[in-house]
Design a protein around this nucleic acid. Sequence first.
RNA 1: GGCGACGUACCCAAGUGGUCAAGGGGCGGGUUUGCAAAACCUGUACUCACCGGUUCGAAUCCGGUCGUCGCCUCCA
Length: 509
Amino acid sequence: MSELRLYNTLSRTVEPFRPAVPGQVRMYVCGMTVYDYCHIGHARAMITFDVVARWLRERGLDLTYVRNHTDVDDKIIQRAAELGEDPLALSQRFVRALDEDLARLGLVEPDIAPKVSEHIPSILAMVQALVDRGHAYEADGDVYFAVESFDRYGQLSGKRIDDLRAGERIAVDARKRHPGDFALWKAAKQGEVSWDSPWGPGRPGWHIECSAMATQHLGDTFDIHGGGIDLVFPHHENEIAQAECATGHGPFARYWMHNGHLTLVDETGEPVKMSKSLGNVIRIRDLADQVPAEAIRILYLDSHYRRPLPFGPTKLQDALMAAERVHLARQVLEGVLASSPSLGSPEADAAAAAGIAATLAGDTAELYELARTFPERFGEAMDDDINTALALAHLFDLVRVTNRFGNDKKAGKRAGPVARIALDAFDLAGRVLGVGGRDSASFFVELTDKLLARQGLSRAEVQARVDQRQEARGARDWARADQLRDELDALGVVLMDGTGGTTWRMRVA
RNA sequence: GGCGACGUACCCAAGUGGUCAAGGGGCGGGUUUGCAAAACCUGUACUCACCGGUUCGAAUCCGGUCGUCGCCUCCA
């Protein structure tokens, strides 16, 4: 087995990943500030670390996965005021929406999903520790972190304190000792949600909650801290400063992983801003209404997580066709297995498969060999800084050989054990990437339902027309049959005449 | 102004010193099919933005040019 290597923003290199406690991994990922529905940009981070978590577990590591909800924040308060809603009620509402959306994308749930509002005591304790240790100071009920008190400030982002252009884009607060100082605790304005503190009623600053929640749940030092590339500065930089100064030692997190941003592009590939004012924000729930999760996951996983990801009009379509291709192949294997059952135990199947492959040779032997060695190639790709695009490419290699195997009529009746081995490979991809593991029937039911809904058609309508055409075909009335097929085609229905009858599916494009 | 990332075929995209430059989509040809669809086979980059350099050898390393994007302010 290859060695897992991860890019560490701290060192700006790909490093061998060695958890602090062998066999155990503690990972914290910055979740969302919950004041609106999550969009395709957020999903990149969520899916990236979902796959990281899945791969760590697949490798047998005992993972504790924490992903927070920031439910107390300026933007939440502002939005709540606009809507005349209680801030915590509003954030609670969007936490639920987020959970729904992520579940629809097939994300594994974090072990712990801490909320700021439920961690005020540990946040206050950390702020107090920072004040006690001389890293923070109070001013009019606010408490600020003094960046000059931490000599490694800027290490993660590669910035130097002196380079931070004070006042360049935001007015300098005269109460700060250094323009880079940031709020740990903000005094409450009239009527704002607040908690009591030694500095008067207030609420946490933006960065402190992650330091406090991460150390509370994972300890002073943990293995992986993840988030979007935009969080490197100032959020993660500040998290490090707060945590390491409060605990008195580092490192806070040993490996820092950051996903690249998704950018919207138009038909010509030119970048377009995604913003509410332009009305082009694409929400996860809207995407999930249109296509199965597998397609969305392929869309993201088909490029490396650190690269920028241009999201254009054809992307979803391409990914959907790829997802369909995977499941058409899986369907072939399920079909073979149905007529030539597995022997029941993995060992028996493995032994039988080897024998059958040797006897039948050709495409059967090739599939056997490719499927047998699949975990190795797949694992190497994943170990190489989570190269999901390469891992998917390996899956598609398997898809092609599977289809070739499926075309080989003489193999079908005896090749159950070989199909079983190949399905194991699909299942591996399913466990790690969330692509290819689901039984094809349920995939196609979901896909068809979603595409029918887009066309405003019902299953019964389509089936009735398909039956009519079958009658015509039975009577060898080809003209009539072709006419009916053309009509169905115009509705987006594709027919497949097979030996066992005609099946239909909705055209993806 | 500072820091950083990226530029691979018609589109998306892996590859970061050495066998034919993965994979997906598209397009052309073929097999199969009543005809199709799906599938398979096959053709689609003698070349990796451009210009120099290092090297026996570079898409991969170094320097420069052009272009795009991000962060430095809330942001996944």
